[in-house]
Design a protein around this nucleic acid. Structure first.
Lengths: 124, 124
DNA sequence: GGCCTGTATTGATGTTCGTTGATGCAAGCT
DNA sequence: AGCTTGCATCAACGAACATCAATACAGGCC
């Protein structure tokens, strides 16, 4: 049930130049855009937030997520799949239920990418 | 030429609960999704990166941005408009040319929203 | 004034995305 | 085995989006 996500946001990839460090090349821009696109939907943002609120190592059962929305169960399942394909979350089936969690470090790496580098020819 | 952007990511809005602090309410999720959606396109990410690379207070003329892409001028103009409406950048016309810059603090606030809060019932 | 250059807007088109009902699959239970 | 529950996948449809050619607008220059 795993093994489908992208591996975009660094992990061991030492690279990780910030957005403001230098103009993004086409390839890296395309990869990162997939992640931000996954975040670019209110339902997915809420889903991710609900999962992330469980803290490090925390998990949420799908059965807790679905009833929080005025949407059909397939729709929620679809959004969870997109978040997973973006490399933000992962899941595991345990018995009848499926549990989701936030992949450790991803959000912090994304944040690091956004914040402007301290060392810069700053004008201020 | 300004005065059209959203005011989403805090500024003086003291609020700014992180994504992992608590489940996002519908309204805030919708607002934030607009920003991430603006970032969810490779062209816009590259545009923003090119502008942000100029550092604090830096500006870029549209005439420098357009030729960096294999896209028509109206398309670039359209993407810049979306970035502006998302509250990420602003612009000003000076004579014949239009200059864009990154709104100060926006990226840092976005990053702060993504990073998990330190104070938490962390399991690790 | 008229012309030229740089940028934004409009209208149209092909593609992608969000949503749903129907269906399929996995696991527990009797 | 058969039934039931939880979740994923499929097929289809309407809405939103990215793109372009054509056009409009703004400012400098003659």
């Amino acid at each position: 049930m795993s093994k489908q996500e992208l591996e975009i946001i660094g992990q061991d990839t030492a690279c990780c130049q910030g957005l403001a460090a230098a103009p993004l090349d086409e390839e890296r821009a395309a990869e990162l855009a997939k992640v931000f696109k996954a975040l670019g939907d209110p339902v997915r943002l809420r889903l991710l937030s609900m999962i992330a609120s469980r803290g490090e190592g925390g998990e949420v059962c799908v059965c807790e997520l679905t009833p929080a929305f005025d949407l059909s169960q397939p729709t929620i399942s679809h959004h969870l799949k997109l978040l997973r394909q973006a490399g933000l979350i992962d899941c595991e089936r345990r018995g009848t239920w499926v549990y989701y969690w936030v992949l450790p470090g991803v959000l912090d790496r994304l944040a690091a990418f956004l914040t402007t580098p301290q060392t810069h020819r700053a004008s201020v």
